[in-house]
């Protein structure tokens, strides 16, 4: 169809305006959040750095910087042949940090994505249907969230570790797959709560009513209307999930219940765990560099989450 005369007229008198979708508006608001934008930049750089690790990591994960017969190679402070120093058996800390960040990022992203998918579905269904399902889900969530997180994690870890079909599906408790499974089992609850609240407020709106009047099924309403309209809270939950999983992995490793990524791999958590004894001996480089990598990730993702929250929900937080 040709343009309507009215819009021609508008164009003639210079009354055209770019139309802005809510997503675009949110994107613009996100760009005004300086810390978040800088964090995106740093995080992208870090991920590129890690992806390109073969270029800068001169040693393998389990490779010693030089043979022990050529002199002591253990616990050496940072030097030109090992930028971040060497660890207790003479391996290059820099290379290990790079490879560790890889595994930690994979654990963080995978668990966050799984908990997001599971949590948003359960939360949306609970919020839309209400009733018994809603009650049960919310009570379960209450109980778990009230427990000290680490206690719940450890108890459930042991419990699933003892159940045959779980270990058959996701591997032994010390595998990376099991870790991801464990974090997803816990992660969905926080997401479900947020999504439930969001859906409860959305479902009273006219567009949902209109969809229902047109005969849309519950599944269609959730997939086509409710979830796309909850993209803001979902992104915030995703960012929280990534940080949560990475920190949980490190915490579990610290007490010896973390993943064992197998020979030829390491995780940030394992390096943090190794730093526990190094700290008291004064080998600061064994603690500082893994911590720095961990903090760069958690801080950046937290700031991005903060920026997303402000962008999608301009009423709350931030400067006004």
């Amino acid at each position: 169809m040709a343009e309507t005369p009215a819009s021609n007229l508008d164009a003639a008198v210079g009354l055209t305006a770019e139309s802005l979708s809510p997503g675009r508006l949110a994107f613009r608001r996100f760009l005004t959040h300086r810390a978040a934008v800088v964090s995106v930049g740093i995080l992208v750089l870090l991920i590129l750095w890690v992806l390109l690790s073969p270029l800068t990591a001169r040693y393998g994960v389990n490779e010693q910087v030089f043979d022990i017969s050529q002199g002591p190679n253990q616990n050496l402070p940072p030097a030109s042949f090992a930028w971040f120093g060497t660890d207790i058996i003479g391996r290059d800390v820099y290379s290990r940090v790079l490879y560790g960040v890889r595994v930690s990022l994979i654990i963080g992203l995978a668990s966050a994505v799984f908990s997001l998918a599971l949590g948003s579905l359960i939360g949306a269904v609970a919020g839309l249907k209400g009733g018994l399902f809603d009650d049960v889900v919310m009570r379960v969530t209450d109980v778990f969230l009230a427990f000290p997180f680490l206690v719940a994690l450890l108890v459930v870890r042991n419990m699933f570790g003892a159940v045959g079909w779980v270990t058959f599906l996701v591997g032994e408790p010390s595998s990376v797959r099991f870790m991801v499974f464990l974090f997803a089992v816990f992660g969905w609850m926080g997401v479900a709560r947020v999504l439930r609240a969001q859906v409860m407020s959305l479902k009273e709106r006219e567009f949902v009513e209109a969809a229902r009047a047109l005969g849309a099924s519950n599944a269609r309403i959730i997939m086509r209307h409710l979830l796309p309209n909850s993209i803001g809270p979902m992104l915030v939950a995703l960012s929280l999930g990534v940080v949560g999983a990475i920190v949980s992995e490190a915490t579990l490793s610290l007490f010896g219940y973390g993943p064992d990524p197998g020979t030829g791999a390491t995780s940030l958590g394992l390096m943090v765990a190794g730093s526990k004894s190094a700290v008291r001996a004064g080998y600061w480089w064994l603690a500082l560099y893994p911590f720095a990598a961990l903090l760069v990730i958690t801080l950046c993702v937290s700031f991005i989450g903060d920026g997303l929250r402000d962008a999608f929900d301009p009423k709350h937080g931030g400067a006004r």
Binding site: V279, A281, F291
Partner: peptide, 24 residues
């Protein structure tokens, strides 16, 4: 922002850094 930073620093990081500084 310092609150955000405080939340993003896992307790084991601050604990181990304090140990490194005050003990060693």
């Amino acid at each position: 922002s310092s609150a955000l930073v405080g939340l993003a620093v896992p307790p084991f990081v601050s604990a181990l850094l304090l140990q490194l500084f005050f003990a060693v």
